[in-house]
Design a protein around this nucleic acid. Structure first.
Length: 600
DNA sequence: GACTGAAGCACC
DNA sequence: AAACGGTGCTTCAGTC
C-alpha cells in the first residue's frame, strides 16, 4: 500500500493507494468504520455508454472522508472491482459530485443497477444549486467540483487540482481528453488528483448541507431533486434510437450544399463565411456597405441573418446557405452520429438542475432543447422503438397560466378558467391585431417593456400603447412583479412556490417575476417526470424539453398511454389548471411535428 | 493545444 | 420610469 500526503489548508490528508489484494482488507476496515463516504471514479472518458463495447473503462474508484481517502485500482484486476462493489453496497450513504455520472459508470462497468445505489446517494452538485445556482460568469460560485472547491473550500487546492490534469496531459505529451485513457495507474500525480476528489465531495457535503435554505429543506426539495436526478439518469440510460441511414443521408446533402455555397462565397473573396471581418470587407468592396449599419452589443459591425437578408447580392445568400448547412450538419446530425453507441442509440446528457432558474439543460451529442422546431428535418433522425410511435405531450401556455396563478389578477384568472383567448383580450384592450397581443403577453413573462416590444410592425407609440393597455387590463401582474422586485431588492433573493431560493442581481430586480414563473414552470415539468416515473412510464420517456415530454409508446396502446400520461402531467396550481396537449406521430420524433403542421 | 470572449444561431 | 428571462454549440480570432 502506498500513502500519499496532501496538505489542504494546512491540514494533512492521507491518501491510501491499494496496490495489492492484501491491501483490500485495510480498505474494507476503512469503509466499515464510516457510515457515509465521499465517492468518485476515474474513467477513460465520459462516454459510459461505450463500456459494453470496451471503448470505455473504469480505472479507479475512490472513497474518502474529510481527512483520509482510499484509491482502488479497479482496472488492475477483478478482485479490486469486487471490493469496490462490496463497499458501494455496504456503505450506508455515498456522497458524490454529479452522482448520476458515477451511477452510470458503476452500473455499466461493475453491474450494480443505478436503482440500487440511487436511494442512498447524495449529490453535492444538487446541494450546491439549492444553495446558490449562479454560474461563475454570473458572479456565483459555479457548480463544477473545481468551482465549488475554489469557492467553499480552498482556492489553492482548486488550482492545484485543475493544474494537475493539465500537467498530466503535458507529461504524457497528449491532450487532456486522451490523457485519461493513457495515464498510468501508479502515476503519483494521477493518484493525488483522484484521491482528493472524494475528500472534496465529503467536505462539500458538510459545508453545503447546512447552507441549503430552511424553506427549501422544509419543502422537501433536497430529496425531490435527488429523485428527479435519478429519473433523468434513467432517461439518459435508455437513450434515443437513431435512424443512422437518415442522419447520414442528411449529412451528405448538407455537405454538398455547404460546399457549393462556400465555393460561391470564395468567388467573392470570402474564405470563411463565419468571419464577420471578411464579410464586412467584402460587402463594402461590392458596394453594399450602406447596409452595414447594425451594431453588436460590443459596438462592432453586425453581419447576422437579418443584415444578410437585407443585402441583394449572391454573396449574401451564399453566406446564409453555407452557415445554415454547416450548423445543421455539425451541431445536429454529426454530433448525434458521433455519439451513438453500438446499438445505434444516443445518450443525452440531462442536467436535471442546471440553469439559474433550475431549468434543466440537455448537452452533449443530443442538444435536444435547441433542435429546430419549424420542421421535422432534424427530429426525424430519432426513432421510437420497433413497433412504437413517437408522442409529444406539452403544457398549454404554461408560463402565462403560472403567472396568472401567482399574481391572482382577476381578468387573467377568469380568462384561463373560462377558456377565453388571453392574447385577444390583450389585443382588444390596445386595439391591435391578436399577434401583437400575444407578443405582449409573452414579453411580460420575460419582464420586458415597450422598447423590447418594438419592431416587426410595432412602432414606439403602438408599443407604449400596448404596454399601457396591458397594465390597465391586468393590474395584478404589475402589482405582483413590483412586490417580488421589492423582496429581491431588500434581500437579494426570491423564494419560488416550491421553496427554492433564487438570487436576483442588484439593478435587475425586474427579472424576479420571470425567475418565479420560469422556475415554477420547470418544477411543474419536473413533478410530471417524477409522477410518470412512479406510474411506470420510466422506460417510455425519452426527453424533457422545458414544457414538453417526448415518449416512445407501443403503437397499439399509444392512445391510451398518451391519455394516461397527459392526465398525470396535468396540474392545477393555486386553482389554475395547466392543461396538456397530446400529439401522437409515426415512428420518428419528427413525424409528430409534420402531423401537427398538416392540421393547420 | 488549451482556453476565452464575441458573435451568431438553434430553442422554450 | 423603465428595465427581454433562461439555455447550448460552433466558429473566429486572439492569448498563453
Amino acid at each position: 500500500m502506498r500513502e500519499i500526503l496532501y496538505r489542504l489548508r494546512g491540514q494533512p490528508i492521507q491518501i491510501n493507494v491499494v496496490e495489492s489484494p492484501e491491501d483490500l482488507k485495510a480498505f474494507e476496515a476503512f469503509w466499515r468504520r464510516h457510515p457515509a463516504l465521499g465517492w468518485d471514479t476515474e474513467t477513460t472518458g465520459l462516454d459510459w455508454w461505450h463500456a459494453k463495447s470496451g471503448g470505455f473503462r473504469l480505472r479507479l474508484a475512490q472513497f474518502g472522508t474529510g481527512a483520509e481517502s482510499w484509491v482502488v485500482p479497479v482496472e488492475a484486476g477483478p478482485q479490486y472491482g469486487a471490493a469496490v462493489v462490496q463497499a458501494l453496497r455496504g456503505v450506508e450513504a455515498l456522497v458524490a459530485q454529479n452522482a448520476s455520472y458515477d451511477l452510470h459508470v458503476v452500473e455499466e462497468c461493475l453491474g450494480i443497477p443505478m436503482e440500487e445505489l440511487a436511494p442512498k446517494v447524495w449529490d453535492t452538485k444538487l446541494l450546491a444549486h439549492l444553495v446558490d445556482p449562479r454560474a461563475t460568469r454570473e458572479g456565483g460560485p459555479g457548480l463544477s467540483l473545481e468551482d465549488l472547491v475554489r469557492h467553499y473550500i480552498d482556492p489553492v487546492a482548486a488550482d492545484e487540482v485543475k493544474g494537475s490534469a493539465r500537467e498530466l496531459a503535458k507529461k504524457y505529451k497528449t491532450t487532456k481528453a486522451v490523457m485519461w485513457k493513457v495515464v498510468e495507474l501508479q502515476d503519483p500525480d494521477f493518484l493525488l488528483y483522484a484521491g482528493m476528489d472524494p475528500v472534496f465531495a465529503y467536505r462539500l457535503f458538510k459545508i453545503l448541507y447546512p447552507l441549503v435554505p430552511a424553506r427549501s429543506k422544509a419543502s422537501g426539495l433536497i430529496g425531490w431533486e435527488h429523485r428527479l436526478a435519478h429519473a433523468c439518469a434513467q432517461m439518459e440510460r435508455t437513450g434515443y434510437l437513431l435512424d443512422v441511414e437518415y442522419a447520414e443521408r442528411c449529412c451528405a446533402e448538407l455537405t454538398a450544399k455547404q460546399e457549393e455555397a462556400a465555393y460561391t462565397a470564395l468567388s467573392y473573396g470570402v474564405s470563411k463565411v463565419g468571419s464577420t471581418d471578411q464579410l464586412v470587407e467584402a460587402f463594402t468592396r461590392l458596394g453594399h456597405g450602406s447596409r452595414l449599419g447594425k451594431k453588436t452589443p460590443k459596438g462592432n459591425t453586425s453581419v447576422d441573418d437579418a443584415v444578410l437578408q437585407s443585402i441583394d447580392h449572391p454573396l449574401a445568400q451564399a453566406v446564409i446557405d453555407a452557415k445554415r448547412a454547416g450548423k445543421f450538419r455539425k451541431t445536429w446530425f454529426q454530433n448525434a452520429l458521433a455519439g451513438r453507441d453500438s446499438s445505434d442509440r444516443v445518450h443525452a446528457s440531462l442536467n436535471s438542475l442546471a440553469a439559474r432558474t433550475a431549468r434543466m439543460t440537455i448537452t452533449g451529442s443530443v442538444p435536444a432543447q435547441t433542435f429546430p422546431a419549424g420542421s421535422g428535418y432534424v427530429r426525424h433522425m430519432f426513432l421510437a422503438e420497433e413497433g412504437h410511435v413517437s408522442c409529444s405531450i406539452d403544457y398549454k401556455t404554461m408560463e402565462l397560466r403560472f403567472l396568472a396563478a401567482l399574481c391572482r389578477d382577476p381578468t387573467m384568472l377568469q380568462a384561463f378558467r373560462e377558456g377565453l383567448d388571453l392574447h385577444q383580450i390583450t389585443a382588444d384592450a390596445a386595439g391591435v391585431p391578436r399577434k401583437f397581443g400575444k407578443r405582449a403577453n409573452f414579453l411580460t413573462v420575460f419582464g420586458g417593456g415597450w422598447r423590447a416590444l418594438m419592431g416587426d410592425g410595432i412602432d414606439e407609440a403602438t408599443a407604449k400603447r400596448i404596454i399601457g393597455a396591458f397594465g390597465d387590463t391586468y393590474p395584478g401582474v404589475g402589482k405582483y412583479s413590483k412586490g417580488l422586485s421589492e423582496e429581491a431588492r431588500k434581500s437579494g433573493y426570491i423564494y419560488t412556490a416550491t421553496g427554492r431560493r433564487l438570487p436576483v442581481d442588484r439593478g435587475r430586480e425586474y427579472s424576479a417575476q420571470n425567475y418565479a414563473v420560469q422556475s415554477g414552470s420547470r418544477d411543474v415539468t419536473a413533478r410530471a417526470i417524477l409522477n410518470l416515473s412512479e406510474a411506470g412510464f420510466t422506460d417510455l420517456m425519452r426527453l424533457p424539453i422545458h414544457d414538453e415530454l417526448i415518449f416512445s409508446f407501443p403503437e397499439k396502446e399509444a392512445k391510451d398511454l398518451a391519455r394516461e400520461a397527459a392526465k398525470i402531467m396535468e396540474f392545477t396550481f393555486r386553482g389554475v389548471l395547466i392543461p396538456t396537449d397530446v400529439e401522437i406521430g409515426g415512428r420518428s420524433w419528427g413525424s409528430v411535428l409534420e402531423l401537427e403542421a398538416s392540421k393547420h
